[in-house]
Design a protein around this nucleic acid. Structure first.
Lengths: 346, 346
DNA sequence: TCACGAAGTTGGATCGATCCAAGAACGCGA
DNA sequence: TCGCGTTCTTGGATCGATCCAACTTCGTGA
């Protein structure tokens, strides 16, 4: 026990003793609040190097009430089928921003029914200074959102506007991108477009659908609504197979709620002997990593996941006294690739 | 100040006062170390519910020297091109296991040259009770590995055997899977097989290569070594294009270091008019999510990433006094799909 | 009924760094 | 040289929960 004690990590007091200054002076030096005179400073620096001292995170967090940590609470992609690839890119941006700001990142994947509960727990336990949440439907849990906001930490809601004061949000211009997709197709002569989306409407797909519907209406083209079970390739293929078997007039273009679905559409169309884009054009959303290297590569509305991740985490400095920043809305640009083209001549 | 105090989170002392017991009794109740008599227990439970009390994580960590957190330090996939999809599945398993054990998960993506430095920092600051690392080459940084191990936390090395005492590891039977892949191809009449792998040899690909080489030699078939720049689809395509242009006798099968590369191989072969699997069979590694839904779907050696993630985090309970567990080795099974088949008749 | 060991309970010290208010050293102009 | 304000340094208290040792209460057997 006592022997073990010796191998224990050095404390700030050890550094102070060795440098012959008070602990507070070392603390000042570390935090940079007051400049330290060159004499003591050099002794402190030497002592830190010799002892290989690192401040204890728990003690620091306890006293200063800051965990130097940002928590990311994401609904489990596996239980959802959606967002896996989005989350991955998002995570890349988030970690980069966290490190740049000297924070650590805590990641939690939860079942949809536990997301807010977990977020509240993390906040109440003081494990994080800020949270970013991806939720299916925040409005359905307004009470819990309020409870979370009441804790006083910066909260960022992903992919949907926040309806609770004190909660900011990060969204992309899904509607604008959707309109661009429709315009692109209409410009290529498509007059009958299908929209394919999972049964469960997430905030993102919902806004995409709204944008598509509005743009289609404005352009005066037919919009067919297709639905698939979830957001997987398999389910998209089944939906397409079912719709084509239905026998109605087939659309010359399909807009899918995300690239995963778009890919299923392409595959099933090809399987049934239809060419993409020669017979049917397909447009997706997100611009996932694979979207550029599948064949045909996917025309898609790019959602800048990594940038959003950076903003979600990097934008939390307002904890240090600033106001809640305005909701940042990221552009959603249409990326035209191989899966879309002119409508076939009737 | 004093006013703010009121809106502050309730402490264990508040609970104790309200329940008319001492703080220690509440602590005992919470930790479950001693059973609490029914009288005080009910009062404590009531007080906790009324105050909506949550223990402060920092204070608990400071005194008990346990952060209730496991850290995952992964080399940044973006800087590497490798492992992105592996990490995602791995993360799913890891979070699930962490929650099941009542731990939180801290995730860090780092540049390859900073990985160990970061891991050491996290450990020294006491932010985690255990670490799981994915490293390019652990043996190259033996000194730092020792420093990390000396801190006394459980360390798990991913995808490669640990060479430092006190460090456990989690690996898959890459060699066995590789042998199975070769056997599969040889059984289908292939006598000339190419191995394609990124220039930088990671522990995983390295062992895969070793397995392939050995099995090919044992079976007496030709093995051609191809190299691509990194582990991306694009780079794999370039490599295949270059090799085919070379003009030598083309192999009838290609084994790729992972599914990402395998996909590039398939695409380039098709682009050059070669059928998969009719003219050339392709086998990959990992069984990423997309491997089952691309077309042709990929024959691949499945690496159980999620299970490994569960084990990496869930296997750290030995912190509580147990010995370092034996290195778990996960099976790597061949999954036969559409991208491989009989060798074409010469 | 009384003594005994085993539980449950209590006050006090402690983990390691930061906050606070007060004291010492510094630089400048008179 | 002295006085003044600034800047740096100091000791002491504090964050909130857990550890420790001593005390009280309870359930048994003599």
């Amino acid at each position: 026990m006592a022997a073990n004690r010796q191998s224990s990590r050095p404390t700030l007091r050890d550094v102070a003793d060795r440098a012959e200054v008070s602990p507070q002076t070392v603390s000042n030096y570390l935090s940079g609040r007051h400049a330290t005179r060159s004499g003591p400073r050099e002794r402190i620096e030497l002592a830190i190097r010799e002892l290989d001292y690192r401040p204890n995170a728990a003690a620091r967090a306890l006293r200063s009430r800051r965990a130097d940590t940002v928590a990311l609470v994401l609904e489990d992609p596996n239980a959802l089928g959606l967002h896996e690839y989005f989350h991955m890119e998002f995570l890349n941006g988030a970690t980069a921003a966290a490190h740049a700001a000297g924070n650590n990142l805590m990641v939690t994947l939860t079942r949809p029914d536990e997301t807010l509960e977990r977020a509240i727990l993390i906040a109440r336990e003081g494990r994080a200074d800020g949270l970013a949440l991806s939720l299916g439907d925040a409005s359905a849990a307004a009470a819990e959102m309020c409870e979370l906001a009441a804790i006083g930490l910066p909260i960022v809601l992903l992919q949907q506007a926040a309806s609770v004061p004190g909660v900011s949000s990060i969204t992309a211009q899904d509607e604008v991108g959707a309109a661009a997709a429709v315009a692109h197709l209409v410009g290529h002569g498509h007059r009958r477009i299908a929209w394919l989306c999972g049964r469960e409407l997430w905030p993102g797909p919902e806004r995409r659908f709204a944008g598509v519907r509005e743009a289609a209406q404005a352009a005066g083209v037919d919009l067919v609504e297709w639905v698939c079970e979830d957001y997987t390739v398999r389910s998209a293929r089944e939906a397409v197979a079912g719709e084509l078997a239905g026998g109605g007039p087939a659309p010359t273009a399909v807009i899918a709620a995300n690239d995963m679905i778009a890919l299923g559409v392409v595959q099933q169309l090809q399987e049934q002997g239809l060419g993409v884009p020669d017979d049917v054009s397909v447009v997706g959303f997100n611009d996932f990593d694979f979207s550029s290297w599948v064949r045909p590569s996917l025309t898609t509305v790019r959602i800048p996941a990594a940038a959003m991740g950076r903003r979600a985490v990097g934008g939390q400095q307002h904890l240090d006294g600033g106001a809640v920043p305005e909701a940042p809305v990221f552009p959603a640009e249409l990326v035209v690739r191989e899966s879309s083209g002119p409508a076939p001549a009737a």
